[in-house]
Design a protein around this nucleic acid. Structure first.
Length: 838
RNA sequence: GCCGGGAUGGUGGAAUUGGUAGACGCAGUGGACUCAAAAUCCACCGGGGGCAACCCUGUGCGAGUUCAAGUCUCGCUCCCGGCACCA
């Protein structure tokens, strides 16, 4: 009978749905909690772009294996799915095709849901989350209001990343190499007043908690987050201006080099600049120079080649440690937005300052001598010494190690009131305002009398109006929709105007995993019992492109919600993270513009879902990119059919009732029955281990293939005896159970046809028996001086001396040690003998 | 420049704690079945030598540790990813 995946798969999908096979046990009020350990398995939810692509298939195939595997292992599994359904493509589609963003989004959701169900994933659709629905974003608005009350959400006017393509601002995380993450337009700077979330308040905790995730998150994701947060520890130092009361404040990570600071460099945007140059002869020239820097937008890739330039302002300040007068320069390499926008220049110990000092003939003063290198002398130095060493020319600190000098000098700064220890962060607050329509309204109100006021909680949700005319230029229609923006002040009830910006969609995705777990509480967004039960997510799976965007925001959000009292005792949302690689075609990422896409639906129509899933899991380990190949999926299809033929052939020939203990064979039995039993149990051990410890689905599948190959060869002989048929039945039952997370439809169908009781996927995960793996004879490798020379079949329990004697008696070994003196013989039990001779 | 990851046959990739390098698949070659083909089943498949038994060689490069190194140490090369005039 021909293998017809369409018929089989649709049949089982219907059965699963009717039986509610994948419902997680209720998690609500205490007492309902199932008496099983929980496992929360989650994939990064999709944006409903239209139809699913191979990247989705790979993502969910990985998650589905884990979910099904954990269910079989006896866990109470939560495996939900949802839609990140606000966002720009919906608006763009609306503009292009004249459909409403809501209609476009909901149609896509319906279509993609069907596609996903056709793949046979075991998601619990009873907990579906759709972020564009009021019943979702109303809670987000509540969080926002509470964040406002705590000062965690605030408005600020600042230069912002503006994407001219999307007509909206972007967060720093959404600018990649100076371009918009979504549309690739060059990002401009625009001075705007925007809403921010104070993620910088959590910088220290976000950084420190990465250590807790070490080992269960990929190292590169942790590294990327550390880079992004960008902690640098140092000091702030005030340098008093000569002839004035003010001081120039700098940030430095090298307070130990303060005695070597011979001049100052400030940015062209420094607030003190005008005052410093006013009335001096340099005034005009410096002003023109600074204006030139401000105007020249520097492309990130051009930074390296940019010549360092500066101008003396005419003003000086005093080094509080040496008393020396330090000229203040405007320099084009000093960033206005980092630290204080001013730098103490230590030419001897900073390469940029060194280059600058040489160019403009400024003094170089050595204050650190390296321990092992030649002595540094200002006249002969060719480059700055940036490493550690011992302080020289540093008054009372001379002779100290640079590390301890840092602390001593910071202490002194604090005593004399000239500075303090300080930590700087690269991380900036998160701009969440978007000048677009299709997003969650920001629940703030502008009142002429009361100013900026949060909406009242009982007035939530602030509903995004659907009756609007989208504008062809992409700008939000909300500022021109009086029905929306006209409101009354929540405080004084006077006339007021609503905020018409919407929230960044990354806010929506920062907490959806909580919503999945939450019970249906009307008063709170979450039932805390349910949250405490399910969270954290035990296994999170998604693309590495979110390493700093979504994954950083979500971590922050959970901490902020915890501190606002919405969740308790939850510090990190994702206990373990798997970042899957991309599905490539001819070595490059599949994309519509390149025309190298493979449509999953077409593949399912040709090969069936089981084959498509199997190939995605077998082609490479999940973290790595892999190339989609026609011959590869053909290979997977061949294997699926091979299992199908084996199963059909055995139906009716092997017992349908499985013996309680796998087999009554004595341990170590030789011959085909013993071999089959050993292979069955070795496979059980390998597959379980590969899924649990290493997410090595490719090697798990390879092990199953080996078992199938063996069963093909052993089949005829095993069918010849009742005992053999029992061995075969046990092996086939294990095979189908092991396969069921990977190819669930195939497994169930064959399970049924072989007459086994229940369902393959409901069966407890097979447990391997140590004694079934045991052998009477083992293969021992014999080496001479580490080179393989022979193999011996020896009794498993042979003594060390016995094994060594057997090795020395071997003809080929004798040949290789002839004429040599035997120095040593080693026996690694059960593995090898190495004869050392010379 | 700093941080993280990687380099193994024709090819995707195995080798879990230092212990048989190349599992499993793809491609290829040969055989069985067939009038024939497809499909299927079986076998071979790093390079060199040999009729064969076997021998030499081989995991980016160079040293080292070890009875034994793809795996550990040191020094490089190249590739991928992140950060970066960050003081």
């Amino acid at each position: 009978m021909k293998y017809d995946p369409q018929e089989i798969e649709l049949k089982w999908q219907k059965i699963w749905e009717e039986e509610g096979a994948f419902k997680s046990s209720p998690s609500g009020p205490a007492g309902e909690k199932p008496d099983k350990p929980k496992f929360y398995c989650l994939e990064m939810f999709p944006y409903p772009s239209g139809k699913i692509h191979m990247g989705h298939v790979r993502n969910y195939s990985i998650g589905d294996v884990l979910a099904r595997f954990k269910r079989m292992q006896g866990f109470n599994v939560l495996y939900p799915m949802g839609w990140d359904s606000f966002g720009l493509p919906a608006e763009n589609a609306a503009i292009q095709h004249g459909v409403h963003p809501a209609a476009w989004t909901l149609d896509n959701i319906a279509y993609m849901k069907k596609q996903m169900q056709r793949l046979g994933y075991s998601h619990d659709w009873g907990r579906e989350v759709t972020t564009c629905r009021e019943d979702y974003y109303r809670w987000e608005q509540l969080f926002f209001i509470r964040f406002m009350e705590k000062g965690l959400a605030y408005r600020k006017k600042a230069a912002q990343n503006w994407c001219p393509g999307c007509n909206t601002v972007l967060a720093n995380e959404q600018v990649l190499e100076g371009r918009c993450w979504r549309c690739d337009s060059a990002v401009e700077q625009k001075e705007l007043t925007q809403w921010f979330l104070r993620i910088t308040d959590y910088a220290e905790e976000l950084l420190a908690d990465l250590d807790k995730l070490s080992g269960s998150w990929p190292e590169r994701v942790l590294a990327m987050q550390r880079n992004w947060i960008g902690k640098s520890v140092g000091a702030e130092i005030d340098f008093p201006l000569e002839g004035g009361r003010e001081a120039l404040r700098v940030f430095t990570t090298r307070p130990d080099t303060v005695f070597g600071a011979t001049f100052m460099s400030i940015s062209a945007e420094h607030p003190l600049l005008e005052g410093l140059i006013a009335g001096r002869k340099q005034e005009a020239e410096v002003r023109a120079f600074a204006a030139g820097i401000r105007k020249a937008a520097i492309a990130p890739e051009a930074v390296d080649s940019l010549e360092k330039e500066g101008r003396f302002t005419g003003a000086c300040c005093e080094n509080p440690f040496t008393g020396a007068s330090m000229p203040i320069w405007v320099a084009n390499f000093v960033l206005a937005g980092y630290g204080t926008g001013a730098v103490m220049a230590v030419p001897a110990h900073d390469q940029r300052d060194f280059d600058f000092a040489r160019k403009y003939s400024l003094p170089v003063r050595v204050v650190i001598q390296p321990e092992k290198e030649a002595e540094l002398r200002p006249e002969s130095m060719e480059r700055a010494w940036e490493g550690p060493g011992r302080l020289v020319n540093s008054g009372p600190y001379t002779g100290m190690e640079s590390e301890s000098a840092k602390a001593a000098i910071i202490k002194r700064l604090e005593e004399i009131g000239r500075g303090r220890g300080r930590t700087n962060w690269r991380l900036r607050d998160w701009n969440i305002s978007r000048q677009r329509y299709w997003g969650a309204p920001i629940p703030a109100v502008y009142c002429e009398r009361c100013g900026v006021v949060p909406e009242k909680e009982e007035n939530l949700p602030v509903v995004l109006p659907l009756e609007v005319k989208t504008r062809p230029d992409g700008r939000s229609p909300l500022p021109e929709t009086p029905e929306f923006y006209r409101t009354v002040c929540p405080r004084c009830s006077g006339p007021a105007r609503r905020e018409t910006d919407t929230m960044d969609t990354f806010v929506d995705s920062s907490w959806y995993f909580l919503r999945h777990a939450a019970g249906e509480s009307a008063k709170l967004p979450f039932d805390l019992e349910a949250i405490n039960y399910w969270l954290p997510v035990d296994q999170y799976i998604g693309g590495v492109e979110h390493a700093i965007l979504h994954l950083l925001y979500a971590r922050f959000f959970v901490k902020a919600l915890r501190d606002a009292g919405f969740v308790r005792g939850l510090d990190e949302p994702f206990a373990s993270l798997l970042t899957q690689g991309m599905v490539l075609m001819d070595g490059s990422k599949m994309s519509k513009s390149k025309g190298n896409t493979v449509d999953p639906s077409g593949m399912i129509a040709r090969y069936g879902a089981d084959t498509v899933r199997l190939f995605c899991l077998f082609a490479a380990p999940p973290e790595r990119d892999f190339d989609w190949t026609e011959s590869g999926i053909e290979g997977a299809y061949r294997f699926v059919q091979r299992v199908w033929r084996l199963g059909l052939d055995l139906a009716g020939k092997i017992p349908a009732s499985l013996p309680a203990s796998a087999c009554a064979l004595p341990p170590g039995e030789e011959g085909v029955m013993g071999e089959t039993l050993r292979r069955e149990h070795a496979c059980i051990r390998k597959v379980g281990g590969d899924i649990t410890d290493r997410f090595q689905f490719n090697t798990a599948i390879a092990a199953i293939m080996e078992l199938v190959n063996h069963l093909y060869q052993a089949r005829d002989e095993l069918l010849g005896s009742a005992e053999g048929r029992a061995v075969l039945a046990s092996a086939v039952a294990s095979l189908l159970a092991l396969l069921s997370p990977f190819t669930p439809h195939l497994s169930e169908e064959l399970w049924l046809r072989l007459g086994f009781a229940g369902r393959a996927g409901d069966r407890p995960w097979p447990v391997y028996r140590e004694d079934a793996l045991r052998r009477k004879l083992i293969t021992v490798v014999v080496q001479v001086n580490g080179k393989l020379r022979s193999r011996l079949e020896l009794p498993a329990d042979i003594s060390s001396a016995g094994a060594e004697a057997a090795a020395l008696a071997d003809a080929n070994v004798k040949k290789h040690v002839a004429g040599l003196e035997i120095k040593k013989v080693l026996y690694v039990p059960g593995k090898l003998v190495n004869v050392v001779a010379s």
